[in-house]
Amino acid sequence: MTADTEKMTPEQQALFDYLLRLGDNAVVLSHRLGEWCGHAPVLEEDIALINVALDLLGQARSIMTYAGEVEGAGHDEDALVYRRDGFDYRNVLLVEQPNEENFAVAIVRQFLFDAWHYELQTALLQSSDARLAAIAAKSVKEVTYHLRHSSEWMVRLGDGTAESHGRVQEALDDLWRFSGELFEADAVEERMAAAGIGPHPQSLYAAWSETVDRVLAEATLSRPEDGWMQSGGRNGRHGEHLGFILAEMQFLQRAYPDARW
């Protein structure tokens, strides 16, 4: 797939990389949420997590269709999602972290992501790229519900029983090291910001941090101190977890290429 990308201009290549980051975040988190189907603590929550997963999958489809057009190599959204290997995936490490059959982990991962995703999609409403702005206008309405949902669970669990408080605090302490990657600037992000296509990642930090502080205070949870921040996913350097996701997600298209319903 990399051979075909030589035809793109540097601007198109940066936009393509940027779109893959957005789309891969949504695809991988959607898959993680999908693992809760039939396994959530209560029926309503089973339905809720799958609804969020469906929204993210729909957003990914809109983004990946566009990414395929920018790339200009004849790849549709299915080709991009089902035929790229882990090295070519551009999602942040946060979204690939496993559920560990622990609802607190799923909620903390979702909350840290939603609080950032809401600010990102809000900023993308102003994108100079009309297609991306239209996708954001659709997405931000959905993400508003996601953030509200994960925030409410942070409060319920954090300000709940000693058991639920302990579990959610532990998950927060554990996942915090993946939050830094959301705000890292690199050549792709800088180019997008300069072109007015996407916000500068650091510009999203203050609002994200304010949301986190507000919800953690209501949830009686302690904000972890910033220490070593693990990153690399946006450049294709993933942990071992992504491979297992792709093995399951891509099996059918790898075994039966071009299979259709």
Partner: peptide, 11 residues
């Protein structure tokens, strides 16, 4: 619940 049987509905 804010999420229901389809994307557009709540319970």
């Amino acid at each position: 619940s804010a999420f229901g049987s389809t994307a557009c509905k709540a319970l």
